[in-house]
Amino acid sequence: MKSNRKAPSKENRADFLKQFQSCFFSTSRPALFPWNLLEKDLESSKSSQLILDVLNQTCLHPHCKKFPPSARYRKYFLGELIRRVEAADCEPLDQLYDALGEVLSAQEGAEGYRTFLLPCGGTVSLLENLALISEGTTGLVTWDAALYLAEWALDHPQTFAGRKVLELGSGLGFTGVTVCRSCSPSKYVFSDGHGSVLRRLEDNVRLNRLFQEETPPEVSVEELDWSNVTEQHLDAIDADVVIAADVVYDPDIVPVLVQLLSRILRRKCGRVLPDVFICSTVRNRQTYEGFTKQLGDAGIGHRVISEAVSHVFEYEPASELELIKLYLR
């Protein structure tokens, strides 16, 4: 059955191209691209002009030269464009085949860039591994919980504005770079405990020029071993806000995480308690409920933050996402 959606009008053409650009640079799944609108335009106009416009916002965009998605992804994307041009019997477009030739000659590596467009007009660019698990860790890719937590932060900048933020298990740094770019914290500490992740995290923070900015926030990347972090280290960070995304996935590390969260919540007793937010992809309900039970056993309550979050980034979570705020009982 044919779609009844119309080709993009002049009024919404910019939004259409922006969606293609956002999906392409964030290496989104095929279903998230507005292919129907593109096909309608090709069928009605028999012109490749819209394809050229799409190319100029994706593979031919200057950002793609500097931070290209993987060669494998660009090859897939150009193949989809060519398939639709040929199906609509449109005029050939040399730039399209030239771009494909360039990608076919490129060496396929184990890494690629992902770039996310921010509402403020800025971007977050990250170098990621293509494999979900590499170098003995899952921390070299960006997971859905980090995207969701960043979207919540964009909706609640007042939670971070002028405050000192500690992120546990920062991974590649997506949430933190977004908060630094859009929410005006006074200080931001990225942290992780895996050597390979820390090296890539520092590279990505540098890639996004956070170390070079003269205005706040003050930014650092620190190794934080949850089982051995000292009170002196926590005192030096002196966080007003603590966040973490996708850190509840292994039942073996949950007790150590809960112990650390308990220490963080209790170290400011008698003063203002830090705000602590944990965002999780609930892949295994038993593991997640084990985490919340251990929180309760440690005298820590939690409130599920259930209000709607503005959808900013191009992704569709494969599992349930849950954001909770912790408090001492």
Rank of each mutant, 00 (worst) to 15 (best):
N12K: 05
R13F: 03
R13N: 06
D15W: 00
D15S: 01
F16D: 03
F16S: 02
F16V: 09
L17E: 01
L17C: 02
Q19R: 15
Q19N: 04
Q19H: 06
Q19V: 09
F20N: 02
F20E: 01
F20K: 02
S22R: 15
C23R: 11
C23S: 10
C23N: 07
C23W: 05
F24Y: 09
F24I: 04
F24N: 02
F24E: 01
F25Q: 03
F25C: 01
S28M: 12
S28R: 12
R29Y: 01
R29D: 07
R29E: 11
R29H: 08
P30M: 13
P30V: 14
P30S: 11
P30L: 14
A31T: 14
A31C: 10
A31G: 05
L32Q: 10
F33N: 03
F33K: 09
F33A: 03
P34H: 09
P34C: 11
P34R: 14
W35G: 00
N36S: 13
N36I: 15
N36W: 11
K40N: 12
D41W: 05
D41H: 06
E43D: 07
E43I: 12
E43Q: 14
S44N: 10
S45C: 09
S47F: 01
S47W: 03
S48P: 05
S48R: 08
S48F: 06
Q49S: 03
L50T: 06
L50S: 03
L50V: 09
L52P: 01
L52Y: 05
L52N: 03
D53T: 08
L55F: 03
L55W: 02
L55H: 04
N56P: 02
N56S: 08
N56K: 15
T58N: 06
C59T: 15
C59F: 13
H61Q: 04
H61M: 04
P62V: 15
P62N: 13
H63N: 10
H63D: 12
C64L: 14
C64G: 09
C64Y: 08
C64A: 15
K65W: 07
K65A: 11
K66Y: 09
K66D: 11
F67K: 14
F67C: 10
P68S: 11
P68N: 13
P69C: 02
P69D: 04
P69Y: 05
P69V: 07
A71Y: 02
A71M: 04
A71S: 07
R72A: 05
Y73S: 04
Y73F: 13
Y73I: 10
R74E: 08
R74D: 04
R74S: 10
K75V: 05
Y76F: 11
Y76A: 05
F77E: 06
L78H: 07
L78D: 04
G79C: 11
G79S: 15
G79Q: 15
G79R: 15
E80H: 03
L81I: 14
I82R: 12
I82V: 12
R83E: 15
R84D: 08
V85R: 13
V85H: 01
V85D: 01
V85P: 00
E86Q: 15
E86T: 13
E86S: 08
E86C: 10
